[in-house]
């Protein structure tokens, strides 16, 4: 089974690289007019899924295309590039990275041929450089062949806190907003003004358990702010894009972090340990999320050491 799957992937990559054939495996859904995404699978990255575990996609204007997150490997980046080609011949003028995690930026090098402007949060360059060596060594092994060609590309344009920027794709304007520390210390969202679609990056996980790699308090505050937004569509970092399900998803994620924060605070107050907290906290949530066992304890650990400083 694995072998068969691998050979399909191998064939796909060959076709994607060498001709204009589409890769049938790599599905693209339309969110709304001119906005497309590939929905990542709720798994850890591995060679079989070539790191395609996050939502990545693109927005087409009249002049050019903006890519929002490029894929979890160079290989996925090539599939995404091919998927764009299947929809339009317009050039890719921007590659926007919502944050530095491998499942969102490892496809960057597949767009080098378009000479796009790479854009990220003002703290993205520092985030890439502090993780680059670790990610390279870890993901070479995790992704195997799919890692080949992956490069760490720094943004050539950055977005600062409290200073959103606007990109024009030709009669289509995107607003890029930089956030204070939430999921990471360099989260960026993309808002399509025409269709009122928000691309959140990993500020929102749906279905798959969220991973806190920034600040639990900061993220809770950001989620509360996001609840007030008036949107027609939302594309989360993981899980289904929708017009009507995201409010529930956001409430669920906010509930998860608020619950674990409350429970961790009680344990810290009683001089409890990280080990104790990771065994006791958030248990009612365990059937509510995919990959709970993989990342919940990590969230508790990371939150614990932050809440010690309140």
């Amino acid at each position: 089974m694995n072998k068969l799957f691998l050979s399909i992937v191998g064939l796909c990559s060959l076709l994607a690289l060498s001709s204009s054939y589409a890769c049938n495996d790599y599905s693209i859904k339309e969110v709304t007019s001119g906005i497309y995404y590939h929905q990542g699978i709720h798994e850890d990255a591995n060679e079989d899924n070539y790191g395609a575990i996050a939502n990545v996609g693109f927005i087409i204007g009249e002049r050019c295309v903006a890519v929002i997150d490029s894929g979890g490997s160079y290989l996925e980046g090539t599939y995404l590039r091919q998927a764009i080609k299947n929809k339009t011949d317009l050039p890719v003028c921007y590659v926007i990275n919502t944050h530095t995690h491998p499942d969102h930026i490892f496809g960057n090098a597949a767009f080098k041929g378009d000479s796009p402007t790479f854009i990220g949060h003002e703290k993205l360059p520092a985030a890439i450089s502090s993780r680059e060596a670790f990610f390279a060594k870890t993901f070479k092994e995790v992704l195997g062949k799919a890692y080949r060609g992956t490069e760490f590309i720094l943004p050539s344009k950055t977005v600062s806190l409290n200073q959103p920027i606007t990109l024009d794709l030709g009669n289509r304007k995107l607003t890029l907003t930089a956030y204070s520390t939430s999921h990471t210390d360099h989260d960026l969202t993309v808002f399509d003004q025409q269709t009122k679609t928000l691309w959140t990056g990993d500020l929102l996980f749906m279905g798959r358990i969220p991973v806190m790699d920034g600040s639990i308090n900061g993220w809770i505050k950001t989620m509360a702010d996001m609840q007030k937004m008036e949107l027609n569509f939302l594309v989360p970092g993981h899980g289904e894009a929708s017009s009507d399900k995201w409010q529930q998803g956001l409430a669920k994620q906010l509930h998860y972090f608020t619950l674990i924060r409350d429970e961790i605070r009680v344990i810290i107050e009683d001089l409890g340990t990280i080990d104790q907290a990771s065994k006791q906290v958030g248990i009612p949530e365990q059937n509510s999320w995919e990959l709970f066992d993989r990342y919940h304890r990590r969230n508790v650990t990371a939150s614990f050491v932050q809440l010690e400083w309140e």
């Binding site: 491998p102 670790f134 520390t181 990471t184 790699d213 920034g214 990342y295």
Partner: peptide
């Protein structure tokens, strides 16, 4: 065992 995933030994919020 290693953690894997996006967990990196670097800090989460250097500025803080």
């Amino acid at each position: 065992k290693a953690s894997g995933g996006c967990s990196a030994p670097a800090g989460k919020d250097a500025a803080a």
